[in-house]
């Protein structure tokens, strides 16, 4: 049986892929040719972000009033392009006076944190600290 080979380490590609993966979920893995992971992460993050916004979840801004708002902002900014398109996707804005809006807030934050986890994995793969094989997607 042939021994699997480790991916060659390319720090520049890893950083570019991480930035791309943050901005467009799954793009970082696609640049590293991890196609199945790219597709799954893309659909998972996009589904959470879009449903969160359509449910009129709150999107935290950078001028946070307290530590919890700052944590919310850090989670939300993790969703990349969806953070910047939130106003376009849901022009009506947030409505947390109903439970549905509150659930949407959590879903959008989850999308951001999940995408940040994916970005960390891109860095791990890119810098060779995570076992990934050429044969595996």
């Amino acid at each position: 049986m042939a021994q699997p080979q480790k991916n060659p380490i390319n720090p520049a590609l890893a950083l570019v892929a991480a930035a791309a993966g943050w901005f467009v979920p799954g793009l970082g893995h696609a640049l590293l040719r991890k196609w199945s992971k790219a597709i799954v992460y893309f659909f998972a993050v996009v589904m959470l972000a879009l449903i969160g916004l359509w449910m009129r979840g709150n999107v935290f801004s950078s001028n946070a009033a307290d530590a919890f708002d700052m944590l919310g902002f850090l989670a939300d900014i993790g969703s990349g392009i969806f953070y910047f398109l939130a106003g376009t996707i849901n022009p009506a804005g947030a409505d947390v006076s109903r439970a549905s809006g509150d659930y949407g807030t959590r879903l959008f934050a989850t999308a951001g944190v999940l995408n940040l986890l994916c970005v960390l994995e891109v860095l791990q793969i890119g810098f060779g600290s995570k076992e990934e094989w050429h044969a595996g997607p």
Partner: peptide
């Protein structure tokens, strides 16, 4: 929806 998305992503991670 939360469970589906997160469990799938965690499995691939």
């Amino acid at each position: 929806i939360f469970g589906l998305a997160v469990s799938l992503a965690f499995a691939f991670l």
